[in-house]
Amino acid sequence: MSVRDWISAVLLVSGALFCVIGAWGMVRLPDTLSRLQAATKPQTLGLLLILAGTAVRLEPHFAVGLVLAGLFQVITAPVLSQLFGRAAYRTGGVDRSTLVVDELSQRLRAGRE
């Protein structure tokens, strides 16, 4: 195996590992907010690693398409997690026993008076 193969293999396997952990977190974690974390974050890193691993093996000419995929993932994932998180918080998708501190609920209560 050449150096390039090794780099690609390491990136692909570690990327896949992060995706698996994200999926496992989805199953194991208790509430929407923590599941959202598992679904969006390790998976973003996993996808970036897999794209990088693939790009190493490809002609530069084809690899630019992968750069675009990574870029859009990085732009869209945080927006999605914010919108879903906000909706989940407001509709009771939060297991409050997991929260050590919740400064938002304090503020919301104060605002309601």
């Binding site: 974690l29 509430d31 974050k41 973003t44 890193l45 970036l48 297991d95 501190v101 400064e103």
Partner: peptide, 24 residues
């Protein structure tokens, strides 16, 4: 991204039964 992904994974694997978080 790398640092906190590893930390997040380690924390989730070790403590998935008793998740602890905060809204600050």
């Amino acid at each position: 991204l790398f640092g906190s992904a590893l930390r997040f994974v380690a924390d989730t694997v070790r403590n998935s039964a008793k998740v602890s978080a905060a809204i600050i």
